[in-house]
Simulated assay, not measured.
Amino acid sequence: MMSGPTSIRLARRDLIFGAGAGLVVLTLPRAVLARPTLDDAIRGFTGGKALNDGRVKLDIPPLLENGNAVGVTIDVESPMTAEDHVRRIALFNEKNPQADIAIFHLGPRSGRARVSSRIRLATSQTVVAIAELTDGSFWSSRASVIVTLAACIEDLS
């Protein structure tokens, strides 16, 4: 059994052992290998709970010449106390080879609910930041980004 964002249970018949130097070929159904949609990835993170607008500020340039190193900062309004803080901040995208970019885990000792990173963007697309608070609520912000020179190019159909 493999683990990760999507757990896959494999039966013996799904593995084909080749002769020679221990060659192992893994065959999986096409649906398992398919990239989840943006909405599916978000539902997986939130457990299907509703998203609220506000409290999250997603700072990403709206127009990029190059998608190879895009600076992004996410700020969440939160007192960051033991009783009321941000548990997780997730960043998702619409068209990269993987829908989830990063998940940051925070606690009251984080001081403030702010994360910064650099990401790659395959092409012009929507980027979504979601914060999970201790009360179980989810807050989000979306941004449309135009990329003139793409990164992460694979089959984007």
Rank of each mutant, 00 (worst) to 15 (best):
G22T: 05
I119H: 02
E83F: 14
F17P: 05
A50C: 08
T148V: 05
A150Y: 10
L106N: 00
L149M: 14
L156R: 07
R120I: 01
R142C: 04
L23S: 04
R109Y: 09
G20Y: 05
M1K: 09
A50H: 14
L91Q: 03
L33Y: 01
I74T: 09
K95S: 08
N66M: 00
R55N: 02
P5M: 14
D40E: 15
L33I: 11
V56Y: 07
R55W: 09
G67Q: 12
E154R: 13
E83G: 15
T46D: 01
R114E: 10
I60K: 01
Q98G: 14
A150V: 06
S110C: 02
D100I: 15
R30G: 04
G44E: 12
S124V: 03
G48I: 07
S157R: 09
A34L: 11
R13N: 04
D53R: 13
I8W: 13
G136M: 05
P61D: 14
V115A: 13
E132Q: 15
D75K: 12
W139Q: 00
S137K: 10
A143V: 13
M2Q: 04
D39E: 14
V32G: 05
F104C: 04
G136Q: 01
I101Q: 12
P97C: 09
I153G: 12
S110F: 09
I8G: 05
M2E: 08
K49L: 07
L133R: 14
A21E: 14
A11V: 10
V145T: 02
E94Q: 13
V115S: 00
V32K: 08
G20E: 05
K49M: 11
H85C: 02
N52W: 07
A99I: 09
L15M: 11
A150H: 12
G22M: 12
D135E: 05
L63D: 14
S3L: 06
F17N: 10
L121A: 10
I89G: 01
R109V: 08
T27A: 04
A21S: 06
D59N: 08
R142L: 01
A129I: 00
S140F: 14
A122K: 02
F92W: 03
K49W: 15
D135Y: 11
A99P: 04
I146T: 03
S78L: 01
N52Y: 06
Q125V: 01
A11N: 05
